[in-house]
């Protein structure tokens, strides 16, 4: 009997306590962050979209090599001795035209491993995380600063130059071999003659066409706020 009354009293009392708790919560500020209107500040070293400062890129492929998911597609062409591509902000001389620098950000796993090996610190992770697209192919970012026409031009020029070099080299090699053969007048000239055939790299013809993987000609998405890491 005593328990019956105590239960009733406790029932009513605990309901009142509960109502007090919920009533007080009615006036505590909500924890909700209304995302598109209000954004949380990201941690200082947050890793989000990659950004490449092409002015500093020397085309060394270090990022491509480091990437565990293979999201880079880089092509380079040697600059002619007569061309001066300038230096990077770190003072390194640029020796290569970067004719293609695509990052498939859909593949990117945001590990940041490409950032550390970069000798000129031109690739970095920004705090931009709102870059969803309706088409997956839109997530392949082209960072190369050259226009398609310039790229084609560069490739033709370097191709010709390399051909010339190869011809010269071959001529020099044959001349040297002939000289050697003449002076020594000994058997075993065949291996020397075979050498020039390997010397000219066949890349000139292979890369003469404009890179097909260029879905949009928009300039590389630059982030308005680039964190200084």
């Amino acid at each position: 009997m005593k328990k019956y009354f105590r239960d009733i009293f406790q029932g009513i009392w605990s309901v009142l306590i509960g109502m007090k708790v919920t009533f007080l919560h009615l006036f505590t500020p909500a924890v909700t962050i209304q995302y598109p209107d209000v954004k949380l500040k990201l941690p200082e070293r947050a890793r989000n979209r990659l950004y490449v400062n092409m002015d500093d890129c020397i085309g060394c492929f270090q990022c491509d090599i480091a990437c565990p998911v293979d999201c880079f597609a880089i092509e380079t062409a040697k600059a002619l001795p007569t061309e001066d591509l300038g230096t990077t902000s770190t003072g390194q001389k640029k020796k290569l035209w970067v004719t293609k620098f695509d990052i498939d950000i859909a593949k990117c796993c945001y590990c940041g491993l490409c950032v550390y090996p970069c000798p000129t610190e031109c690739i970095k992770m920004t705090d931009v995380y709102e870059f969803s697209e309706f088409d997956r192919h839109q997530l392949i970012y082209n960072y190369a600063t050259l226009t398609p026409a310039e790229i084609a031009d560069v490739k033709v020029r370097t191709g010709e130059y390399e051909k010339e070099q190869a011809v010269k080299k071959a001529a020099a090699a044959t001349a040297a071999a002939q000289a050697k053969a003449a002076s020594a007048a000994a058997p075993g000239t065949a291996p020397a003659a075979a050498k020039p055939a390997m010397a000219p790299p066949a890349t000139a013809q292979a890369t003469a066409t404009v890179a097909p993987g260029a879905p949009k000609e928009a300039p590389p998405p630059t982030s308005p706020t680039e964190p200084s890491l």
Binding site: T22, H25, L26, F27, T28, P29, A30, V31, T32, Q34
Partner: peptide, 13 residues
């Protein structure tokens, strides 16, 4: 709204 604010949320906004 009442349920949201009692749970420290905002509800429909």
């Amino acid at each position: 709204k009442v349920s949201a604010h009692m749970q420290d949320r905002l509800g429909p906004m």
